[in-house]
C-alpha cells in the first residue's frame, strides 16, 4: 500500500516532468522556426490583430475601472494621513509596476488564450495539421510561431494602453471628482516613477505575452483529439496560464526590486 503511493507519486512526477520538457522543446522549435525563411508577415499581422487589437476594448475598460477604483480607494486611505497629494504617484506606481502588466495579461488570457487553445485543438481534431504537412508546410512554423511572436509583440502595447488609461482613470476620480490638486497629481507622479519601474513593467508584459501564447498553443497542440480533449485543453490553457502569470510575476518582482 505504502509502495503504491510511492509508485503513484513517481509516475505522476515523471509525467509532469515529461510534459514540461515537451513544452520546452515545443517553444524552442516554434521560436527557431519563426526566424527561418520564408517569413510570414501577413500571418504575423493577422495574429497580432487577433491577440492584440481585438483585446483593445476589454483592456481599455479594465484599465479604466482599475484606475477609477484605485483613485477612489487611494484617496480615502491617503486623506486619513493628509497625504492625498501623493495620490498620483500611488496610482501610477501600482499600475505601472503590477496591475497594468498582470491584469492586462489575465484579461488577454481569458479572451485570446482560450481562443488560441480551442482553435488549435479543433485544427488538430479535423486533421488540418497533417493536411498542412501533406502540402509540404510545417504546421508549427505556419500556425504556432506567428502566435508566439504576436503574443510577445501585443502584450507590451496593450499594457501601455492599460497604464495610460488607468492613470487617467485615477485622474478622473482624484482630480475631477474629489478635488485633488491637478499639479500635485501629475507632479508627484513624475518625481516618483523611475525608468526602472517602466522597464520592469515592459519586461513583465513581454514575459506574460510569451506565456499566454506558449501555454495556450501547447495545450491546444497536445489536446486529445476529441471534443472533451479540446474543451479540457481550453480550460487548462486559461487556468495554467493565469497561475503561471501570477507566479512569474512574483519571481520577476523579487528579481527587479
Amino acid at each position: 500500500m505504502k509502495f503504491d503511493i510511492l509508485a503513484y507519486i513517481g509516475r505522476f512526477t515523471l509525467k509532469r516532468v515529461q510534459v514540461l520538457g515537451q513544452s520546452g522543446v515545443f517553444l524552442l522549435v516554434a521560436f527557431y522556426q519563426a526566424f527561418l525563411p520564408p517569413f510570414r508577415i501577413r500571418r504575423l499581422l493577422k495574429e497580432i490583430e487577433f491577440i492584440g487589437s481585438k483585446s483593445f476594448l476589454i483592456v481599455f475598460v479594465t484599465g479604466l475601472f482599475t484606475g477609477l477604483v484605485l483613485g477612489l480607494q487611494g484617496y480615502h486611505t491617503l486623506t486619513q494621513f493628509g497625504a492625498e497629494a501623493l495620490l498620483g504617484s500611488a496610482v501610477a506606481l501600482s499600475i505601472i509596476r503590477e496591475l497594468g502588466p498582470v491584469l492586462c495579461a489575465l484579461m488577454v488570457t481569458g479572451r485570446a488564450g482560450s481562443a488560441i487553445a480551442s482553435q488549435i485543438g479543433i485544427m488538430k481534431i479535423t486533421d488540418q495539421f497533417p493536411a498542412l504537412e501533406m502540402m509540404a508546410i510545417d504546421p508549427v512554423k505556419y500556425v504556432i510561431s506567428p502566435k508566439i511572436l504576436a503574443g510577445i509583440i501585443s502584450l507590451p502595447l496593450l499594457t501601455a494602453v492599460f497604464d495610460v488609461v488607468g492613470i487617467m482613470g485615477g485622474y478622473l476620480v482624484g482630480v475631477k471628482l474629489l478635488g485633488v490638486n491637478e499639479g500635485a497629481y501629475f507632479g508627484k507622479m513624475v518625481t516618483s516613477v523611475t525608468f526602472t519601474d517602466i522597464y520592469g513593467g515592459i519586461l513583465k508584459s513581454l514575459s506574460f505575452g510569451l506565456l499566454i501564447a506558449w501555454i495556450s498553443s501547447f495545450m491546444g497542440f497536445t489536446a486529445d483529439p476529441t471534443t472533451e480533449g479540446v474543451s479540457a485543453a481550453t480550460t487548462n490553457a486559461v487556468v495554467i496560464t493565469s497561475l503561471s502569470i501570477l507566479i512569474v510575476d512574483y519571481i520577476l518582482t523579487s528579481l527587479l526590486l
Binding site: 479543433i122 488540418q128 497533417p130 493536411a131 504537412e133 501533406m134 509540404a136
Partner: peptide, 19 residues
Amino acid sequence: LYEKRKKMGMLFQGSALFN
C-alpha cells in the same frame, strides 16, 4: 520529404479543409 510531398495530394477522411 517536403520536396516529395509537393508531388503528393491527399484527400483526408474528414476533408481537412481550413475552416
